[in-house]
Design a protein around this nucleic acid. Structure first.
Lengths: 338, 338
DNA sequence: ACTCCTGTCGACATCGTTGTCAGCTTGGTA
DNA sequence: TACCAAGCTGACAACGATGTCGACAGGAGT
């Protein structure tokens, strides 16, 4: 294993100064073609590659062409699509992407953010976990741009790209009510996640608007995995006065519910998922567009990096209620109007 | 937006030398508690954070605590799980992860590798695209460790973590034959992808072993998207002498085939996918374990980074044939033995 | 009183690259 | 011939951190 050659090595080999090598490597004008050719030959001979660590240090105030993305879990399909879109935009912009998973752990989130900023990232796409993000103020103050995706951060004013969770939940409940349901269960992930809280709030207000009293017996929070959700819905159905319809707060919960739900019970789930259309009955979902979210967030980020200093913006992306069947199963109050 | 404070700033604030600040920041012994306290106070006051770019430059030959992972596409669930496992291991090792998608494009692959190595990554987890990877020799020679996952790289000897694709395809075909099929179609992704080629080879040898002649009319390559696969299988079924069973080379193709396949035709697909068990009929798959693959590759990589200089190893992970129903649909030659 | 040691701290040089500026050559013009 | 402009190249310093080594103080031992 040889040591990595430096510009000095190339310079010696080509019989020029390191500065000239630098100029050639960076395609700066004002180098004689012959000189450049000698340098290129030396570069090939030695297998030289510019050291961007040194470069970034020297070019202070310049960009490192590195952005970070910090999300719950790369393995989550929603997050993965989002990350993929971010990476695409970053590449177009000539930047590389540092990725990290917070796994819903604020401590881990801080650690990863710190590891990122100590490497001088130009910007960060953040899917914040619950809790305050005031600790990011320092980073923001010293030039790290931050754009939140999916949820916004508390204690920090940043750009954000989100969907109207409350309105979407509202629409889902209205949809179920219109199909004759009045006993509608809610099964959800942890309530301290901002988006989940908003969805639950939408559930409650929609019930109220429909004149249906909320019943804690058919509400469950804190479901992290599909099996948990399956067990929860099974318990509910076994209880007295079971629900005739279910709203699932996100895709994981929706999957779990689906597996345990008898055919006659209606289901609307947040988040589209692969094969949702091929199940029987096909699952009605509130679909988000993670790629649009990722690329929007990334474009916002790079606009900031390139100097956009306008006040922080929140972009609200639309959701689609995709009626596939499971959400249109008629309930006991169905009036045949649909 | 303030400028980022440096050790010099902290030193001035605390009335010590930068060297002492360095010692405090890096928790080196030999600093009086009182002095350390003053430094800590100054750090908090100024919001100082160590600049790892400068640190990495100075500590030449030391690690940058950064590894790269380069895969086809982050949005692919298989790759996403793999990446997630890699990130977990990296975090345990105190490293951050640079991620990049090659999108099956050798040019893009080279560009991303170059962007990574110019940042002095300690190591790279690579899911190689088709074509030669001799261009990595330079990087390997100057200290970047490379571990391939899912497929091995040609023109370069590295550690690799793979599955026995040929044997697995063999087993799948034997399974179908045992259930009375002799007219078995193959639908596959691009043949120049190493794993796909191996699976196809396994298909052919298994047919031969069973004394079944291969028929190009029921073989299709180059299917990139689910709809392509659906169209291909539909065309096959509409032709003369349609297949009674299908082998799909990977999850994407399997999904497409499933959507277009009538109930009576058997299907075995490579790659497990979410909900495969909840379809009707449930899909029989050859399941791999992407997390095991990712974490094995990552552990290999860090062993190399920490000095393991033994000859390159190839780890072959097992696959599981998960019989769920679609692969056990009896064919015309079924003898009732199963 | 002298040496020797231990513990604490700072000065200096250096990592690889690049911004700045000065020096050199060449050719053209008065 | 003298002079200047333009084009090409190199010397030097600096980015922020840290490895090395030396300075200095205070205490122990003779």
């Amino acid at each position: 294993m040889t040591v990595r050659p430096t510009m000095k090595d190339v310079a010696r080999q080509a019989g020029v100064s390191p500065m000239t090598v630098s100029r050639v490597v960076n395609r700066e004008p004002g180098v004689l073609p012959g000189t450049a050719a000698r340098v290129h030959r030396a570069i090939r001979t030695l297998g030289y590659q510019r050291d961007d660590v040194a470069r970034q240090l020297r070019r202070k105030g310049q960009l490192t062409q590195t952005v970070g993305i910090l999300l719950d879990n790369v393995a989550d399909p929603f997050m993965a699509s989002l990350a993929s879109a971010v990476e695409d935009v970053a590449r177009q912009q000539g930047s590389v992407v540092l990725i990290g998973s917070s796994r819903d752990d604020p401590v881990r989130e801080r650690e990863v953010v710190s590891a990122f900023t100590s490497r001088r990232i130009d910007g960060l796409i953040l899917i914040p976990v619950a809790g305050s993000h005031r600790f990011l103020r320092n980073a923001v103050a010293t030039g790290t741009r931050v754009v939140c995706a999916d949820r916004s951060a508390s204690g920090l004013k940043t750009d954000a790209v989100v969907v109207d969770n409350r309105g979407s939940a509202n629409r889902a409940i209205a949809h179920l009510v219109a199909h004759g349901h009045r006993r509608i269960a809610y099964l959800g992930d942890r309530l301290d996640i901002r988006t989940i809280e908003e969805r639950y709030a939408g559930y409650l207000t929609a019930l109220e608007a429909a004149g249906i009293p909320a019943d804690p017996a058919i509400v469950r929070h804190g479901l992290r995995q599909a099996p948990d959700a399956a067990a929860a819905v099974a318990a509910m159905l076994a209880g007295p006065d079971p629900p005739t319809a279910v709203l699932a707060s996100n895709g994981i919960v929706g999957l779990g519910v689906r597996a345990a739900l008898p055919g006659g019970t209606a289901l609307v789930s947040f988040d589209d998922f692969l094969l949702a259309a091929q199940l029987d009955p096909p699952v009605t979902v509130i679909a988000q567009d993670p790629e649009a979210m990722g690329s929007t967030a990334a474009h916002l980020l790079f606009a900031r990096i390139h100097g956009d200093a306008s006040p922080p913006r929140t972009v609200v992306l639309p959701t689609r209620l995709v009626a596939r069947g499971s959400g249109e199963i008629p309930g006991p109050y169905w009036d045949g109007a649909h």
